[in-house]
């Protein structure tokens, strides 16, 4: 656009996807899931992507050969929310309001950390939302929703986040 503009930009830049992928990986280290979500010490920690995968290879690069407390990291892709069996972090690449409502409804009661970047993501019930500020990636966290799902978020992560609630966003 005129002056200072994304003349050729249409999709998220590769750098943006890369940074977000690394954030997703980092989140695994700042969240505590209920013990029952890991049947045993070697059970995988599953990062799921619902909808189109925006990360290219970056999420693979970020998670390959990584273990979090002996839990190997695994990436799964889901076309619909019904395909989700077991999952710890879910990146929800859906911005349609109705669809999002359905997703959050069906995830209710499950200890899944939901992450997204659509504008209404938190307002509709998501937990962590990426946004861009001055060309840098920042994130909002809805602590109440995470708590309700049995997740504990490290204060280290909270300190860097913009804390929001479902109502005031």
């Amino acid at each position: 656009m005129v002056g200072d503009a994304g003349l050729w930009a249409q999709q998220p830049s590769s750098r943006e996807s890369q940074v977000k992928a690394v954030f997703l990986f980092n989140f695994t280290q700042f969240i505590e899931w209920p013990a029952k979500t890991f049947p045993d010490a070697e059970s995988p920690l599953i990062i799921g992507i619902l909808g189109d995968d925006p990360f290219g290879n970056y999420l693979e690069q970020a998670t390959t050969n990584e273990k979090i407390n002996s839990h190997p990291l695994i990436i799964q892709h889901y076309k619909t929310v019904d395909e989700i069996k077991k999952c710890h972090i879910l990146f929800v690449n859906i911005s349609n309001k109705e669809q999002l409502d359905l997703v959050f409804k069906s995830l209710e009661g499950k200890s899944i950390l939901t992450v997204g970047d659509s504008r209404n993501f938190i307002r509709q019930g998501g937990m962590i939302r990426f946004f861009t500020d001055n060309d840098k990636i920042k994130f909002q966290i809805n602590v109440e929703v995470a708590k309700a799902a049995g997740l504990t978020i490290s204060s280290k992560l909270l300190r860097l986040a913009e804390i929001v609630t479902s109502k005031n966003n």
């Binding site: 050729w8 943006e16 690394v22 954030f23 690069q61 970020a62 840098k136 990636i137 920042k138």
Partner: peptide, 23 residues
């Protein structure tokens, strides 16, 4: 990506991600 993983969260939040014409 490997180098990014070594960054602290603070540093990660300082990476510029501008799109094409900006970067």
């Amino acid at each position: 990506t490997g180098a990014l993983k070594k960054l602290s969260l603070e540093d990660l939040m300082n990476i510029e991600i501008t799109s094409v014409s900006k970067h």
